[in-house]
Design a protein around this nucleic acid. Sequence first.
RNA 1: GCCGGUGUAGCUCAGUUGGUUAGAGCACGCGGCUCAUAUCCGCGUUGUCCGGGGUUCAAGUCCCUGCACCGGCACCA
Length: 667
Amino acid sequence: MPRFYITTAIDYVNSRPHLGTAYEKIAADVIARYKRLAGFDTHFVMGNDEHSQNVFKKARENDEDPLAYCDRMAREFLDVWQRLDLSFDDFIRTTEPRHKAGVQELVRRMTAAGDIYEGHYEGWYCVSCEAFKQEKDLVDGLCPIHRTKPDWIREKNYFFRLSNYTQPLLEHFQAQPEFVVPDVRRNEILRLLEGGLDDISVSRAGQAWGIPMPEDPSSVIYVWVDALINYATAVGFGTDTLLFEQWWPADLHVIGKDITRFHCVIWPAMLMSAGLPVPRAVFGHGWVHFRGEKMSKSLGTAIEPLDAVQRFGPDPLRLYLVKEIAFGSDGDFTWERFEERYNVDLANNLGNLVSRVATMAEKYREGRLAPAGEPGRLAEIATSALAEYRQQMDRFALEGGAAAAFRIVDAANEYIASTEPWAIARDASRGAELSQVLFDVAEAVRIAAVMLLPMIPGSAREILRRVGDGTPPDRITLDGAVWRNAGERVLIKGAALWPRVETNQKLRSPSVKENVPTPPTAPWAPPVASPSTSEAVTPLSPPATTDNGAPPPAASPVDSRITIDDFMKVDLRVAKVLAAEKVPNSRKLVKLSIDVGTEQRTLVAGIAEAYEPEQLVGRTIVMVFNLKPAKLMGIESNGMVLAASPDGGKPTLVGFNADVPAGTRVR
RNA sequence: GCCGGUGUAGCUCAGUUGGUUAGAGCACGCGGCUCAUAUCCGCGUUGUCCGGGGUUCAAGUCCCUGCACCGGCACCA
């Protein structure tokens, strides 16, 4: 049996899962489920990336064990993944022993290959700033902030000879054009390679949170290097040779387009160095925006779409993401569109089709259907749609695969309209014809449902049950989706799979929850014994909302609150803008001369996209008075203006509705 | 400023490697059916495929150029 090993990126545990991360997992899940259906022995791995410095910091600030923090986040992630009905076979966390062992083994091999060398990170270091300075930051060789000469320091680091792999990688890209999908990303990487690669640092000195270098526990392996290796350690690299040989190399890494570099350059180079085969393909998917805006990490907008799961089960959202977004390019989620697709694809077309065939079967044939002649033209359509489906899915055009399945749904609805079974039923002499027509429709629905199993697994299984396909779920195959003009089917009527939703007001209002029956299918829940679907089988654990349906409090998993003393360290003052001009060659920066009551200052602010300089003159602003100076585009900025700064939006300055003299303290 | 992306019907978008009269869904209008979740089916309307130039027998598709919007980076501390 051919095998298929697929992974997603592992997630930082700094924030909770949102639509963007969910999209990647859903897409990967669809591929994994498709491969299983197509007869591949499939291994699907997801995981969490836990050795981030932020994790360590957050935990330390709260006197908490970092691992305990990660445990808590892992539970949150797994909870969401389960609600989305993701069929991963394994979930790896980078703090697990199996991962640590594998990472060290890989680094050992790279070292043995002569590709790891001890070096020093060298640079200017300003003790007062506690920061490295680049040559270009210095003014006359001095720290622009402290007017002192920085030290030239060296910090021990281990480096990977990535530069040695420019050529091997280029050759690999030649030999395996499918290595990076889609093409856009491949070209980006090629350009990068053509420019040549520099060695990279793979360790960090003086950190405690991470995996120690095998030969030098005083350094930990850089979190990115650590993270990449999960794809190998999850299948036993360094701990379970047999398992590793069974699955490696991975067939597909599904990742976001922003991290293609790591996966297409650094990762394969590391593997080459360690003498391991490189993965067969990397797919860099696009972003899902929310109402046209980039996904915000502030919890509200990013998570809201996941409410769709709580209200409708995972399948409508899954189908939306897969069918409405060309896999590989960016997409958008809006409630309006979600409602449209829900009503059209699921309620009106597929759901209603299932309903009408089951009803007719019962009404005219007591639920039992068997062929009584030759199949009609639906058979051809289904056959060609199936071929199209395979072709699309094999090249990861998931939207094309979904569309192919729905072509059968459309054809079946048309077929019913043109054959008019209710008319045939009135003529007793046409019994065989009626049996055949109904059987044809049931068969078409069966085939469409098999094709939709990867996208809407729970619902598709329920449809199969209703059209009398008793095959156990794990025995269903794509090969079984060929048209079968044989056997008796017992169709089962049930409640509406997807009751129509009328307005997006309703859809978005939490109060509608009781009007919308629980989704009929809950794949992660025990098999539903009763065909009745409107009963309160609540497959979804209580949603993360408060009783009144308000969004969950943005409770960060760790307490990051500060004391009043902390706050009082920040000296906020009122200031008047005396003059303003754009910083040349900059897009966002404005240079401001301001009056802070006791003195005049120069300050650079990143608000040029929202304000013309002329608008700013004379304006009252609020600034951070005691901020260390910073040099921006060569101009020293003494302070910082306060503005509301939405993610992906333009800033709005803080102001007053009464006149306040310059220099007034704000607190 | 540098790099990348996008621009197709009122809206949201498909359009593989160039190949007939440019598509889908929604919306809108008309008609039909009653098995069905007021669902389904048929017909119809709307296009300077962003503008300009070029290659070609043939360009939405390839090349050059201009414009608009979006993203990333340089700088938003």
